[in-house]
C-alpha cells in the first residue's frame, strides 16, 4: 500500500465551528509510505475517532478514507482483515489486550497471523522495553504502563506499510517513552513504513515529523 488519503473527512458528531480551524477535518490530507505524521490535538477533539476511521473500525463520518484509491467504506470485513494482517498496524489508546492470556500469548496471537519476526523477537523487544520478566504473566496482572508496552510490541510483530499510534506513551515515563520510540522508529525504517502518531502535545524527541493540528 503506497498511500492513505483523507478526503474531506468529518465526523458526523462534530459541529461546523469546531472543524473550521482544523488541518484535517474537511481537508484533503495524503500520507505516503515512509512519511511520519504527528497529529496534535487536545483531548476530546477527535484523535481516537480519526485513528479509528483510518483503521476502518468506525464509519460515522462524511467524506472518504482511501487506501491507495480504494474507499475503505466499500471494503468487506474479509478484505479488511488482509489489510490488517500485513498493510496497516495499530496501537490502540485503550490497548485492547486479551486480559486472561499471558503477555507472550497476547503478542504471539498477532505474530502468527503473518509472521514478520521470528518468535525470539518477542523476548528481544520485551527486554528492550523492560518487560521480559512479565512475558509469562497474565496481561491483566500487568500495570497500565506495562500493558502499553505489550500493545506496542504486538503492533510491531506484523508486516505493515502504515503504523497508527493513538497516545501510545500516555503511561510511560520519559526513559521508557524514549526506548519505545526508538524501537518503533527502527521497525518503521525496516519496513519503510509511514507512522501516523496522534497525541495531546508535540513530543520533544520526535525527529522530522510533519506536525498537523486537528
Amino acid at each position: 500500500m503506497m498511500q492513505i488519503e483523507l478526503r474531506k473527512v468529518t465526523p458526523d458528531y462534530i459541529e461546523k465551528e469546531n472543524w473550521e480551524a482544523s488541518q484535517i477535518w474537511e481537508k484533503t490530507v495524503t500520507i505516503h509510505k515512509g512519511e511520519h505524521l504527528h497529529i496534535v490535538a487536545p483531548s476530546g477533539s477527535g484523535k481516537t475517532s480519526l485513528i479509528h476511521f483510518i483503521y476502518g473500525l468506525r464509519k460515522d463520518y462524511s467524506g472518504s478514507v482511501l487506501y491507495d484509491n480504494t474507499d475503505i467504506k466499500k471494503l468487506s470485513t474479509e478484505s479488511f482483515s488482509v489489510f490488517r494482517q500485513n498493510k496497516i498496524s495499530i496501537i490502540f489508546q485503550d490497548l485492547r489486550l486479551f486480559e486472561d492470556q499471558t503477555v507472550k500469548e497476547n503478542i504471539e496471537i498477532k505474530r502468527i497471523l503473518d509472521p514478520y519476526h521470528k518468535p525470539e523477537a518477542i523476548t528481544e523487544m520485551a527486554k528492550r522495553l523492560g518487560i521480559e520478566k512479565k512475558l509469562n504473566q497474565l496481561a491483566k496482572k500487568c500495570s497500565y504502563g506495562e500493558q502499553q508496552r505489550i500493545a506496542i510490541i504486538r503492533a510491531l510483530m506484523q508486516p505493515f506499510d502504515f503504523l497508527l499510534l493513538d497516545e501510545p506513551y500516555s503511561h510511560l515515563d520519559d526513559e521508557n517513552r524514549k526506548k519505545a520510540m526508538e524501537l518503533i522508529y527502527e521497525e518503521c525504517e525496516k519496513r519503510n513504513a509511514a507512522m501516523i502518531f496522534a497525541d495531546l502535545k508535540a513530543l520533544d524527541f520526535l525527529k522530522n515529523e510533519k506536525i498537523i493540528y486537528l
Partner: peptide, 14 residues
C-alpha cells in the same frame, strides 16, 4: 469481546 478483538487484529471472519 475476544472474537471482536481477534477480528480487529486482522483475523479473517471466514
Amino acid at each position: 469481546d475476544n472474537l471482536r478483538l481477534l477480528l480487529t487484529l486482522g483475523y479473517s471472519p471466514n
